[in-house]
Simulated scan of single mutants.
Amino acid sequence: MAYWLFKSEPSAWSWDQQVAKGDEGEEWGGVRNYQARNFMREMKVGDKGFFYHSREGLEVVGIVEVCAAAHPDSTTDDERWECVDIKAVEPVPTPVSMKDIKANPKLEEMVLVKNSRLSVQPVTKDEWNEVCRMGGLRS
């Protein structure tokens, strides 16, 4: 299993909206960055991810699971763009802020710290375990 981080501005798509989609999940469409698209192409059904509120909140607020592998993005007719579907798994009991992530030496190499603008990014198993610990979750 691989681990990922999905960023969304809560005013555009929030954790509550993701939860409301239930087990059906939601297409993670509209991504127009080649590196982020390529990461989605690598994802497998069952991979886990952090749901991160960007711009407002700046924190990991939930755990999601990839529920459909990469497929054409329905938000465009341009065949270069693909996306995955994700579903909410559980909220993070104590949201983990960007400030706390940056302050943790175990996370200093995390893509979120090094390239915070990337909307879909990989997370190592050690980073996953540490953020889960910080948020009050078992990894």
Results as ranks from 00 to 15, higher is better:
residue 43 M to D: 11
residue 72 P to Q: 11
residue 108 E to D: 09
residue 49 G to A: 12
residue 37 R to Y: 07
residue 63 I to D: 06
residue 54 S to R: 12
residue 139 S to N: 12
residue 91 P to R: 15
residue 101 I to V: 13
residue 75 T to F: 13
residue 10 P to D: 06
residue 63 I to S: 12
residue 31 V to R: 09
residue 72 P to E: 14
residue 47 D to C: 09
residue 108 E to V: 07
residue 133 R to A: 06
residue 49 G to F: 13
residue 68 A to M: 12
residue 3 Y to W: 14
residue 118 L to P: 00
residue 19 V to M: 14
residue 99 K to F: 09
residue 44 K to E: 12
residue 117 R to Y: 05
residue 56 E to P: 00
residue 67 C to Y: 03
residue 48 K to N: 09
residue 2 A to S: 14
residue 58 L to Y: 15
residue 44 K to M: 09
residue 136 G to V: 08
residue 20 A to R: 11
residue 25 G to C: 05
residue 93 P to F: 10
residue 56 E to R: 13
residue 78 D to S: 05
residue 124 T to M: 08
residue 32 R to M: 10
residue 130 E to R: 10
residue 111 V to E: 07
residue 42 E to P: 00
residue 112 L to E: 11
residue 8 S to Y: 01
residue 138 R to P: 00
residue 97 S to Y: 14
residue 34 Y to R: 10
residue 67 C to R: 03
residue 63 I to V: 14
residue 7 K to C: 02
residue 61 V to S: 06
residue 17 Q to A: 05
residue 67 C to E: 00
residue 106 K to M: 08
residue 111 V to W: 13
residue 33 N to Q: 04
residue 33 N to E: 02
residue 1 M to Y: 09
residue 20 A to L: 10
residue 78 D to V: 02
residue 64 V to P: 02
residue 69 A to Q: 01
residue 133 R to F: 07
residue 107 L to S: 07
residue 48 K to E: 09
residue 114 K to R: 12
residue 72 P to K: 15
residue 101 I to A: 06
residue 79 E to T: 08
residue 108 E to S: 07
residue 97 S to W: 15
residue 42 E to D: 12
residue 58 L to T: 06
residue 1 M to F: 07
residue 134 M to I: 05
residue 4 W to P: 00
residue 109 E to G: 03
residue 70 A to G: 03
residue 42 E to Q: 11
residue 70 A to T: 10
residue 131 V to I: 13
residue 11 S to C: 06
residue 14 S to L: 13
residue 89 V to A: 10
residue 91 P to L: 14
residue 60 V to L: 08
residue 56 E to G: 00
residue 26 E to D: 05
residue 107 L to Y: 11
residue 40 M to D: 07
residue 58 L to W: 15
residue 49 G to C: 03
residue 65 E to A: 05
residue 96 V to M: 14
residue 61 V to N: 03
residue 56 E to Y: 14
residue 123 V to G: 02
residue 27 E to F: 12
residue 37 R to A: 05
residue 110 M to H: 07
residue 8 S to E: 01
residue 117 R to I: 08
residue 3 Y to F: 15
residue 116 S to H: 10
